Lab assay of single mutants.
Amino acid sequence: MQGVVKVNSALNMRSGPGSNYGVIGTLRNNDKVEIIKEVDGWYEIRFNGKVGYASKSYITIVN
């Protein structure tokens, strides 16, 4: 499943599904990501070869 990031500035990509996990990357508005699965309001995603987590509130699913 594919998604597009929708933010005003930047979205942190984290090592786990929560804001208490470390930041491993930064996503920008309109970045395209691969959604692997949903975990407690977060998406596990793949972006630029990295796998991490981002809040699903800021990612819109596209077909």
Rank of each mutant, 00 (worst) to 15 (best):
Y58N: 13
D31F: 05
G22S: 13
E38P: 04
I36Y: 07
I36Q: 09
S19V: 13
N29W: 08
D40L: 08
R14E: 02
G22H: 13
Q2M: 14
D31Y: 06
N30C: 05
I61P: 11
G52R: 01
K50F: 12
K32W: 13
L27N: 00
N20F: 11
V5D: 01
G41L: 08
A54E: 01
K32T: 15
A54G: 07
A10E: 13
N12C: 05
G52P: 00
K50S: 12
I61Q: 06
Y58Q: 09
R14Y: 14
I59P: 00
R14F: 14
S19C: 07
N63H: 09
S9N: 12
E44A: 08
N30G: 14
Y21D: 03
N63F: 03
A54M: 07
R28C: 05
G41C: 06
N12Y: 13
V23K: 08
V5Y: 00
T26D: 06
V7N: 08
R46D: 15
N20E: 14
I36A: 05
N63W: 02
V7M: 05
P17T: 02
L11P: 04
V23D: 04
V23C: 05
E34R: 03
Q2R: 07
M13Y: 06
N30M: 11
A54F: 04
G22I: 13
N12S: 14
A54N: 00
T60K: 08
G16M: 02
S9V: 10
G52A: 09
A10S: 13
M1F: 12
G52C: 03
G22P: 12
I35V: 10
S57G: 08
K32N: 14
N8T: 14
Y58E: 14
G52N: 01
G41H: 07
T26G: 04
V51C: 05
D40G: 09
I59Q: 00
N29V: 05
D40E: 11
S9Y: 11
Y53V: 00
R46H: 14
G52W: 02
I24M: 10
Y43P: 00
I61Y: 07
G25C: 05
W42D: 02
R28Q: 15
S9I: 10
S55I: 12
V7Q: 04
I36F: 11
K50W: 09
K37I: 08
M1G: 13
E38T: 06
G52L: 02
S55H: 13
K6T: 14
E44V: 06
N48H: 13
V23L: 07
E38K: 04
R14P: 01
K37W: 06
P17N: 02
I59L: 05
K37N: 12
R46M: 15
V39Q: 09
G3M: 03
F47W: 07
V5R: 01
I45K: 00
P17R: 02
I24D: 02
V23T: 10
W42K: 01
A54W: 00
V33I: 09
N20Q: 12
